[in-house]
Structures are given as C-alpha cells and as structure tokens.
C-alpha cells in the first residue's frame, strides 16, 4: 500500500510541471497568466474570511463549553462497537448540509487531535470524498424548478457512506491507528 504515498508526493509536482510545459509549448506568457490567476485568489479569500471567522467562533464556543465532549461520551458505546471514532459524527452530519460549517469542525479537530493523528488523517481523507449533499441538491434542482428528485438523494447518501467507509479502512491500512 506504500505506493499510494508516492502518489501523494508526486501529484502536485506532476500537475504543476505538466501545466507549465504545456503553457510554454503553447507560447503563452505563463508568469503573467499565473499572476492573473493568483490575483483572483484574493477575491475568493475575502469572501471566505468573514464566514470562516464566524464559524470558527461558533465551533470554538461549543468546544470550550464541553458540549462536544459530552456528546462524544454519549456516543462512545456505539463507536466501540463499530470501532469508528465518534469525534467525527458531528462532522459527518454537518458535512451534508453546509461546507463552511463543516470546515469549522475540521479545523477544530485538527487543533484538538493534530493533523497527523489517526483522526486528523481520516478527516483529511474523508473531506475529499464527501460533499454537501442537501445544499448541492437544492441549489442545482431549484435552479431549474425540479421538485421530484427521484433516486438522487438515495444515490448521494450511498456514495457518501461508501466514501466514509473507504476513507476509514484506507487510512487504517496506510497509516495505522
């Protein structure tokens, strides 16, 4: 399974060099274009920042109050049965509704357990394969006035669950507990 970690190391350098070589071959001013794209990131950050601050504050409050720990204690017996860390359950639920709110929880978990802990790694892997199901569905279907969504929700939930289970075992096998 170690070859997967090689993918981790090579992916970004490969994409970056591929894009730069392609840009050179096409004869565009790659550095100017890079700057143009980099500039746009400032706009993206400015829209994210107030949201992120608001949510990190809210997650900070709920963490400091001890509510999350109480919730985790409550769920501990269940998680011992299925060996899945309960700390991630609020995140999994919130993830289907709002990506910014779930991001607040992710950062909180990184802070509590560290990004290189089992939980930290599992969260990192999981975030890549789960999506804001309810949010995405409502935005996409509402934009064209569709009311009956048929099997979309079932499919999305099944894919999400498969992603969570896969993340759990992959993290376990590659990095260990």
């Amino acid at each position: 399974m170690k070859w997967i970690l090689y993918i981790s190391d090579f992916m970004i350098p490969l994409i970056v060099s591929g894009v730069i070589i392609y840009g050179l071959l096409k004869g565009i001013n790659i550095f100017d274009v890079f700057i143009e794209g980099a500039k746009e990131s400032v706009k993206v950050i400015l829209t994210i920042m107030p949201t992120l601050i608001g949510l990190m504050m809210a997650v900070g409050i709920i963490r400091a109050s001890g509510s999350l720990n109480m919730f985790e204690l409550l769920l501990k017996p269940i998680s011992n049965l299925i060996t899945f860390p309960v700390e991630l359950i609020p995140l999994i639920v919130l993830r289907t509704i709002s990506s910014s709110a779930s991001l607040g929880l992710v950062l909180d978990l990184f802070k509590q357990y560290g990004p290189d802990s089992f939980i930290g790694r599992l969260v990192s892997v999981m975030m890549g394969c789960t999506e804001t199901i309810f949010y995405t569905m409502s935005v996409y279907f509402m934009s064209v006035g569709i009311k009956k969504t048929r099997y979309t929700l079932a499919g999305a939930l099944i894919a999400n669950l498969a992603g969570i289970i896969a993340s759990f075992y992959i993290t376990l096998f590659i990095f260990g507990k």
Binding site: W3, I4, L5, Y6, I7, S8, D9, M11, I12, L107, F110, K111, G114, P115, D116, G120, R121, S124, V125, M126, G128, C129, T130, Y151, A154, G155, A156, I158, A159, N160, A162, G163, A166, S167, I170, T171, I174, F175
Partner: peptide
C-alpha cells in the same frame, strides 16, 4: 493541515484519491 503543524501535509493526497474513486464507482453503479 500545514497550518496546524502537520509534518507532511500532502501525504493524504494518494489515500484521498483512492477513497474518492471508490465512492464515485459506487455512485456510478447505483
């Protein structure tokens, strides 16, 4: 991950690709 002090922030790329591929295959089959 880098912000919170990971020793190797990008180590999760490979495992993420694997996990997301599995979830997408399940989605397509369904």
């Amino acid at each position: 991950r880098a912000q919170y002090g990971s020793r190797n922030p990008s180590e999760v790329i490979g495992p993420s690709i694997l996990a997301t591929t599995i979830s997408t295959i399940v989605a397509i089959i369904f």
